[in-house]
């Protein structure tokens, strides 16, 4: 189909999405990648962030992606995420609590607290909140 990309998002536990999209914005490890049809084949690591895609009818959707890989072909995007959740699935209260907890740990580190882990947790929570804001 001209002008459309096949977007597939899978996690180890399930296939999350199979959708024809006009374009997608993927949170790669080195920053966001905007992908349109006829993109050159690309392989990249994913970071933690929000995947935004525009469906055939122009509607935009958001989902959280945490780690993994993305493979881009001329007419498809395959996202192999370690974890991914669509915006409707995200528990905002839980993400907010996680963010507060992580920030608390970063600002007032108790002995034995792993700062790197807290930073990661904060990043994950922020990505979830950002996606969930677009429910």
């Amino acid at each position: 189909m001209a002008g459309l990309l096949r977007l597939e998002v899978a996690t180890p536990e399930r296939m999350l999405l199979k959708e024809n999209v006009r374009q997608a914005q993927v949170p790669a490890a080195n920053g966001y990648l905007g992908i349109l049809p006829e993109h050159a084949p690309l392989l990249a690591e994913l970071g933690t962030g929000v995947l935004v895609y525009e469906m055939e009818n122009g509607q935009k959707k958001w989902m959280t992606v945490i780690g993994g890989y993305v493979e881009v072909g001329p007419d498809r995007i395959r996202v192999l995420a370690n974890r991914a959740e669509s915006a409707d699935e995200i528990d905002m209260a839980r993400a907010q609590a996680a963010l507060r907890r992580a920030e608390e740990r970063i600002l007032h580190p108790a002995p034995g607290v792993d700062i790197a882990r807290a930073l990661n947790a904060a990043e994950r929570a922020r990505a979830r909140l950002e996606a969930a804001a677009h429910k």
Binding site: E8, A10, T11, P12, E13, R14, M15, L43, Y69, E71, R78, L80
Partner: peptide, 23 residues
Amino acid sequence: ERVINARPYARMANELLQDVVAA
């Protein structure tokens, strides 16, 4: 169902691995 749901990822991850090994 959980076994079946996990299959697409496994298949794709295998393909990805092969491509990366080749490169």
